[in-house]
Amino acid sequence: MHRTICDFLLDIIQNSLEADSSTVIVHVQQDESRCEMTVADDGCGMDPGELKAAGNPFYTREGKHSHRKVGLGIPFLAQTASMTDGIFDIQSKKDFGTSVRWVLPLDHMDTPPLGDLSGTFLSALTYPGEFELTILRSASSKGRQESYELQRSELAEALGDLESSGSLALLRKYITSQEQELHKLLNG
């Protein structure tokens, strides 16, 4: 089981990237009591049979791991949502893409901590491959809202590359500086 909500997020984004998506859009919205995350891609999608099987921990897509019979990403998340009276929803259409949405109450005793969002975004944005990733992050508290947007192509252009240790260090600073504003809002 994953230790933080962010680990689920990274896992689900990775599913999208491994499904040959060219565009992935991630929403992360948070207020004092709940967090809502959506990962939508235009990857290979699943037919109704595959979609049903994705919830089974003893199913994994053929070819993803030959000789292996487990796929734990989605079952972990679905279990966490049901344990915490949260919401888990997955929609998919073969050859069109998949959208996963979940809402977790932050005050339920079985909800894992939110975890390191900056590190999660850094990892997702620098995952190798040709794809566009847009991250929309917002937080609201006491009637005020703060948000920021990260776009992979824009960051790649600004940094020159997304794989050298120098670029990664700068990107980490950049994302952390965005996240700090939201942190201030949420923690007064």
Partner: peptide, 12 residues
């Protein structure tokens, strides 16, 4: 101060 190591990720 090493800026030119390539750091990438892969699946399992």
């Amino acid at each position: 101060q090493v800026s030119d190591v390539i750091v990438t990720q892969t699946g399992c």
